[in-house]
């Protein structure tokens, strides 16, 4: 059987193997999170109550909300870097994360007297959150888009959106350690607004950058 001559060239070039995509993602997410986190905590510090916050159940629940999102998006992010389009079925974990969010919000609604809902929702740092979290998220998103660009993303817009949502979740986690507002009401409202913005930004820049 004759083979195609191009195969010879590709076989000879095999040793030039690029790093596995999953390694690249892990590495880039790790590095950019540590870098951005250091800068942010260097500038604004941790929460006033510092380590004591770890004894605060509401604080831990807040972190768990963001962790749940990050874990649910992790496999989707890998999918978004490859040539097989992200399908609704790939978002199953995200569905579970959404249920967890709903449960937390429901719990808060039951525990908190009605009169305090508004205060919990508005918190003390809404505007700060709204300005600083995108600033944390943007460098993460840039790093992620560069990484995906080196992959083979199918569906530039969807892949960019996934990257944006993921980076918003990581930015949320970084910010959450600083922020004293722990109510799920606050988180879903303000963090949610930032997540929508970053997801849209990811989708738009994906459209431009993720063609290959």
């Amino acid at each position: 059987m004759h083979t195609h001559p191009l195969i010879g060239a590709l076989v000879e070039d095999l040793p030039s193997s690029p790093r596995r995509m999953s390694e690249q993602i892990r590495f880039r997410v790790g590095i950019s999170t540590v870098l951005v986190g250091s800068v942010f905590y260097g500038l604004y510090g941790l929460r006033g109550d510092g380590i004591a916050a770890l004894g605060d159940v509401r604080f831990l629940f807040k972190l768990s909300l963001l962790l749940a999102l990050i874990l649910a998006l992790w496999p989707v992010l890998h999918r978004a870097a490859g040539p097989i389009a992200v399908k609704p079925r790939d978002l199953r974990l995200l569905g579970w994360a959404a249920l967890y969010w709903l449960a937390m919000i429901g719990g808060e609604a039951m525990l908190l007297p009605r009169g305090e809902w508004n205060r919990a929702l508005m918190g003390e740092n809404g505007i700060f959150c709204l300005t600083v979290m995108p600033l944390i998220g943007l460098p993460l998103l840039a790093a992620m888009l560069v990484t995906l660009r080196g992959g083979a993303p199918e569906g530039a817009v969807a892949s960019g959106a996934v990257a944006g949502f993921f980076c918003a979740s990581v930015a949320g986690l970084i910010y959450a350690v600083h922020c004293p507002d722990d109510s799920p009401f606050f988180v879903v409202f303000w963090y949610g607004a930032v997540a929508i913005a970053l997801t849209v930004m990811g989708a738009l820049s994906g459209r431009l950058l993720l063609r290959w």
Partner: peptide, 28 residues
Amino acid sequence: IMLAIHMRRHTWDESAMVMPWVYGIARH
């Protein structure tokens, strides 16, 4: 397509079958 398979071979997830990935690249 062959060239794309070669240049993007690091995006295949080793725990999955290779053909769906090949089809994805081919289609693209």
